[in-house]
Write a protein that binds this DNA or RNA. Structure first.
Lengths: 217, 217
DNA sequence: TGGGTTGCGTGATAGCCTCTAACGAACCCT
DNA sequence: AGGGTTCGTTAGAGGCTATCACGCAACCCA
């Protein structure tokens, strides 16, 4: 319709400007961290004056929230396509590491230091659930007959977070260890805690992954 | 001496004011995160005007560096006294978790999101080495006869970071898994990624610790 | 005990930043 | 072509870091 066409044109413009803003924001974050993000600097880069950006983002926190949303979406999509291409748990681990190394600050926007007061909006936690579901699926597909663990039996009664998922508790336990262990190696690597130690973080990551995939005796 | 006594008095005063500044800074960080730390607000709380603080800290980054130093010192001391009291690896893990839960933002000051440009001064990395040494000691004391792993043999040629430590490569491997796995659980817990999942992070932490202590078959 | 020195705290100021408000201009729809 | 919406602008308040020059008190030494 004509009325819709005009609205759509404006919406397109808005979306394009918003996209350019977030693009510049990602550059700033990659080089100086999220705390150094400046709306003023972005506006100056785009040839606009500072307050103009407030037509597109209500506040600085609003922009950062959008960046967090994009980060979650990017990770979810990365794992989704990897899974759709037939990747198993090891393949997902490789995808996760590649995604993290491509932009460490983006990883930390998802899994890094939280701001005490901040609570992510519902749509972001929904994306987080999708990420977890993808990983739980891969865990369930990998080992339908893994050994029983004490924590696994505990999870039988505490699997609300996996509601609607038919994976056995051992698969949930495997997911949790997969998540926490790989995050442990990755976050310390990205934060630079291995630099100067003379060891290759990739090999430590691989060793942890091997341990995760090898069934316990 | 008299001359020394006067200097010492001034030094005492300086140290006391510096201590009060860092104390207020810790309060601010605990409630609003490190990025929200404001020298001005601290000065106003202490009844002074803003620029006065620059007599005690050269810059905001300087104050934050001092807080990072205190955090490292606090963790090193916690682990040192635990070790001196006879704690084994499990005891050190418990100490570590207690220290982290006591002040999550302090933990993130050590192991959280890094600022891209920042490099810690040498004395801080020295404290980091002491922390690692304490943990490696406990790992070496725990299992002198653990099984050989591929990554362990890799570490035989890449143990520069453990220079001067006589621990076998398997103990170094155990330390690395201890460090990364517990950090993985802890950092996700402190960041709130388990809230709303209906599971007790303490049990997941305990399960990971059990797995670390149980020898692989 | 008095004078020079040292160090501390202050206000003023520059230069950033976020964010609000009011105004002009461009645009779309009727 | 007119009316309403949206955009970008400038002006400005209020916050911050950081520097500077200045009073002032404490201290050291003769």
């Amino acid at each position: 319709m004509a009325t819709k066409g005009a609205n759509a044109s404006r919406e397109r413009y808005r979306a394009q400007v918003r996209a350019e803003i977030t693009e510049r924001a990602w550059e700033q974050i990659a080089t100086a961290g999220a705390s150094a993000l400046s709306l003023n600097a972005i506006a100056k880069q785009m040839g606009m004056s500072g307050p103009a950006l407030y037509r597109y983002f209500a506040s600085r926190d609003d922009l950062i929230t959008e960046l967090v949303r994009e980060a979650y979406r990017s990770l979810a999509e990365t794992l989704r396509t990897a899974s759709a291409t037939g990747a198993d748990l090891a393949g997902l681990a490789h995808s996760l590491r590649g995604w993290a190394l491509a932009d460490p600050q983006r990883y930390f926007l998802v899994y890094g230091t939280p701001v005490p007061g901040y609570h992510a909006p519902a749509d972001i936690t929904a994306i987080s659930s999708e990420i977890m579901t993808t990983l739980v699926d891969a865990c369930a597909a990998l080992a339908p007959d893994s050994a029983v663990t004490p924590f696994g039996t505990y999870l039988e009664d505490h699997r609300d977070w996996a509601a609607g998922h038919s994976a056995p508790p051992e698969a949930l336990h495997r997911f949790l260890t997969f998540w926490t262990r790989l995050h442990g190696v990755l976050s310390l690597e990205l934060a630079g805690h291995f630099t100067g130690m003379g060891l290759d973080p990739a090999l430590l990551f691989a060793a942890e992954l091997d341990d995760l995939l090898a069934p316990r005796a």
